[in-house]
Simulated scan of single mutants.
Amino acid sequence: MLVSAILTSVGINSALCVLFLVLYSILKKQPSYYEVYVPRLLAEGSSKRRSRFNLERLIPSTGWLSKAWKLSEDELLSSSGLDAVVYMRTITLCLKVFSFTGIIGMLILLPVNCTGTELQQVDFADLYTSSLDVFTISNVKSGSKLLWIHFSSVYVVTIFICYLLYYEYNYISSKRIAYFYSSKPQADQFTILVHSIPVSAGSSVSDSVESFFTEYHPTTYLSHTVLRRTSKVQSLIVSSVFFFAHYCHQFFSFPLFLHI
């Protein structure tokens, strides 16, 4: 691991980050990309397209970065939805993990590795072409008791990450449940998929379903929709239904939606 290779990698990744930030700050201002970046605001009518040319759209800006970090979770939830809250908490989770592991690596593991004698010390006179393996576990002698510090650090980091994941899972789950109960009921939340409908003689599938569910489930049955392979559009719908069925580890020979 050469210093020149690390600097090259850092330079390339930094340039890509700057490029992506510039592209995002420009593309999010373009009216043709409003459906991608602000679909919620468009649906609510809070944002409108502006077709007139504006030079400001072509100038990258960074003000949105500070605004994004200053928003509280309640403000982010009301403006962008639950998915945005989960995304921001995922970023903060990664920052916590990187910060914790960085502290352990710099304050504990790095001094341990530097005290090893397996490799030649770094030549600071020619640092650009020198190898940094002396700062890694390769510099610790095989069988040394110092290796237990590495093993213990792995366990500590693993326990810390597992605790964070457990905490975030419980927190996000509670947020999703609260968001679910606070939102209006949707038809897809009360829809089931059935198949192999027995058809009575002289009646259609729709009539058979209607009579069956109104007789045995009168308090929960609302309506039904039969999906048939009679056209190209409906075949695409049936394909999507079969994809959903495969995802649920079930296979349906005659898909039918029931709204309960």
Rank of each mutant, 00 (worst) to 15 (best):
residue 233 V to Y: 13
residue 179 Y to Q: 12
residue 137 I to G: 13
residue 65 L to R: 01
residue 3 V to D: 00
residue 42 L to C: 06
residue 43 A to E: 15
residue 2 L to F: 09
residue 82 L to H: 02
residue 151 F to I: 11
residue 22 V to S: 03
residue 94 C to D: 15
residue 197 I to S: 06
residue 23 L to H: 01
residue 68 A to Y: 15
residue 215 E to V: 00
residue 254 F to A: 13
residue 246 H to S: 15
residue 89 R to Y: 04
residue 26 I to Q: 03
residue 257 F to R: 02
residue 180 F to C: 09
residue 200 S to W: 10
residue 197 I to L: 14
residue 159 I to T: 12
residue 47 S to Y: 10
residue 4 S to D: 08
residue 98 F to D: 11
residue 76 L to G: 05
residue 133 D to Q: 11
residue 74 D to P: 04
residue 156 V to S: 03
residue 59 I to Y: 00
residue 214 T to F: 07
residue 118 E to C: 06
residue 246 H to W: 10
residue 165 L to K: 12
residue 124 F to L: 15
residue 100 F to M: 06
residue 148 W to R: 07
residue 84 A to R: 05
residue 91 I to K: 08
residue 111 P to T: 00
residue 150 H to F: 03
residue 54 N to E: 06
residue 13 N to V: 14
residue 233 V to K: 12
residue 244 F to K: 06
residue 151 F to G: 03
residue 255 P to F: 01
residue 147 L to F: 10
residue 239 S to N: 13
residue 31 P to M: 01
residue 105 G to V: 02
residue 243 F to D: 15
residue 97 V to H: 02
residue 234 Q to D: 15
residue 238 V to M: 14
residue 3 V to W: 00
residue 95 L to M: 14
residue 248 C to A: 10
residue 141 K to I: 07
residue 116 G to A: 04
residue 114 C to T: 13
residue 32 S to G: 08
residue 18 V to P: 05
residue 102 G to S: 13
residue 227 L to G: 10
residue 102 G to K: 03
residue 6 I to C: 06
residue 50 R to Y: 08
residue 241 V to Q: 07
residue 60 P to D: 01
residue 126 D to Y: 04
residue 171 Y to L: 07
residue 252 F to G: 04
residue 228 R to Y: 12
residue 255 P to T: 05
residue 202 G to H: 05
residue 209 V to L: 11
residue 216 Y to G: 07
residue 229 R to D: 15
residue 137 I to E: 07
residue 97 V to P: 01
residue 252 F to T: 11
residue 104 I to Q: 05
residue 69 W to T: 11
residue 85 V to Y: 03
residue 213 F to A: 03
residue 45 G to S: 04
residue 247 Y to S: 14
residue 21 L to E: 08
residue 242 F to M: 13
residue 84 A to V: 02
residue 138 S to C: 04
residue 66 S to M: 10
residue 160 F to R: 02
residue 250 Q to Y: 06
residue 105 G to K: 03
residue 165 L to M: 13
residue 210 E to V: 08
residue 184 K to T: 12
residue 37 Y to F: 13
residue 10 V to L: 14
residue 73 E to P: 05
residue 230 T to E: 15
residue 214 T to S: 15
residue 101 T to S: 14
residue 112 V to L: 08
residue 242 F to H: 14
residue 150 H to D: 03
residue 192 I to A: 12
residue 173 S to D: 15
residue 108 I to E: 03
residue 238 V to E: 14
residue 204 S to Q: 07
residue 83 D to K: 06
residue 146 L to Q: 09
residue 88 M to L: 06
residue 231 S to F: 00
residue 126 D to A: 08
residue 31 P to A: 02
residue 41 L to V: 03
residue 97 V to I: 15
residue 253 S to C: 07
residue 93 L to Y: 03
residue 41 L to T: 06
residue 139 N to R: 00
residue 54 N to Q: 06
residue 134 V to E: 06
residue 68 A to L: 12
residue 160 F to S: 01
residue 186 Q to N: 12
residue 114 C to Q: 07
residue 196 S to W: 09
residue 230 T to R: 13
residue 14 S to D: 07
residue 23 L to C: 13
residue 62 T to S: 05
residue 80 S to C: 06
residue 39 P to F: 04
residue 124 F to I: 14
residue 178 A to H: 10
residue 72 S to I: 05
residue 74 D to F: 09
residue 158 T to H: 07
residue 248 C to E: 15
residue 183 S to M: 12
